[in-house]
Design a protein around this nucleic acid. Structure first.
Lengths: 232, 232
DNA sequence: TAGTGGTCTAGACCACTTC
DNA sequence: AAGTGGTCTAGACCACTAA
């Protein structure tokens, strides 16, 4: 009917859906399936590549193709420390830039040693003169590191990465929690008893296998809604 | 050196990284690039398929392949209303199952009309006799709908989907907020002044183009940390 | 009309798994 | 040694885009 490799994808999806193929089942060999669908092995493999990509099957070289166990827990989420905020950030004030002593947490997060110096940058994001978000960035100290300069100047890491042409070589990890803010955070964000979001973000260079930055974003709860979607 | 199509992927990634290829740039035609790399067009297209998949390039049929603008905001996150909780849920109590009147919010979320009946299921998840999570599930009422039966019996939607063999035909959407709980939630979770997570989840069947369920998970903040990762 | 990507084939050789 | 998936080729025909 339509495109051959799509038809095959649909057929196999349906077999998994209807229960004809269950999790862990071994599919017929590619050559066999190809001839039974009346297509070349290349075409069948194109279908399989899609099915693997979409999480329906997985392949063990030399053995065969197997049906995946379904997992529906994976969501895709956007997070940007400026653009995700529910209001328009109209002012960013740089609190300070300091070389600070390291500690246990920073050594772990930045994968540095006890004698390594750390640059700490603190900023507050305001909306209508009201502080909404307080961010603390930690970077390993290196003389003349351009990232530090940019971290001071730019609002979000998105732009910092662009500037430094680290286009595609980084990994990021975030943990999102509700916390009861400590005194420092309470003061900066002028909080009373509100609980707030704490988003901890680690940024890793995959190429040099080093940590670029560890950041903490303290965000007033009422200004952040995280949205995530899952297909499949 | 290594595998041809991987070498090509790396080469093009590096060109994008180094700035030799910028966002929006048009790549040479596939036939041309194939011969300049000394490979068949099939092999080059395998490389391109990876690059498209990883978000480095995009394709416009009849025109060409273009370099993507980098976006580093997309994270992959896991969420499961039982397994993501920091402690072991040892007891689940079903508060009630009721057919309730609809309202504006439910009509919107479930895409139902003003005369459609809604099934509401409420549960509390406990850990060491302490209520940790309160969930409210809303499902469009249909006589003999097996999903409702399973929604009563099973802890999480993961299992409910498995039971109903809706293996791969659903989409899910969640919004995560901090809220100040209302009286009802405060009572159920025995809260004082804590702020808590509210995770609103919509589940859609893509096949029948209908809403399967709308859920709200109220979770004590100290028992939930969301973790997300971004590659690229 | 010429150029582009989209699809597909038939066959080749390899590395890995299993017996 | 036989069977599996992994890689790769050279060439074909199509639909779409642009001049």
């Amino acid at each position: 009917m339509g495109v051959l490799y799509i038809d095959i994808v649909d057929d196999i999806k349906n077999k998994i859906l209807s229960g004809e193929l269950g999790p862990g089942d071994l599919l017929q060999p590619e050559t066999e399936l190809a001839s039974s669908y009346g297509v070349s092995r290349t075409t069948l493999r194109k279908s399989f590549s899609l099915l693997v990509n979409q999480g329906y099957i997985y392949t063990i070289p030399g053995k065969g193709n197997y049906v995946c166990k379904p997992t529906r827990k994976h969501y895709e989420m956007q997070f940007d420390e400026v653009e995700n905020i529910n209001c328009k950030i109209d002012d960013i004030s740089l609190l300070d830039v300091k070389i600070v002593e390291t500690n246990r947490k920073l050594m772990e997060k930045l994968m540095t040693g006890p004698s390594d110096k750390i640059v700490r940058i603190r900023k507050v994001f305001n909306c209508n003169k009201k502080p909404i978000e307080y961010i603390v960035m930690y970077l390993p100290y290196e003389r003349g590191n351009p990232i530090v300069e940019d971290a001071i100047k730019f609002a979000n890491f998105h732009d910092i990465m662009d500037r430094n042409q680290l286009h595609f070589q980084v990994e990021k990890e975030i943990d999102i929690k509700i916390i009861k803010p400590d005194l420092e955070v309470k003061e900066v964000l002028q909080l009373k008893d509100e609980y707030i979001f704490l988003v901890s973000q680690g940024i890793y260079s995959t190429e040099k296998n080093s940590v670029i930055s560890y950041n903490e974003f303290y965000i007033r709860g009422e200004y952040l809604t995280l949205h995530a979607e899952a297909k499949i």
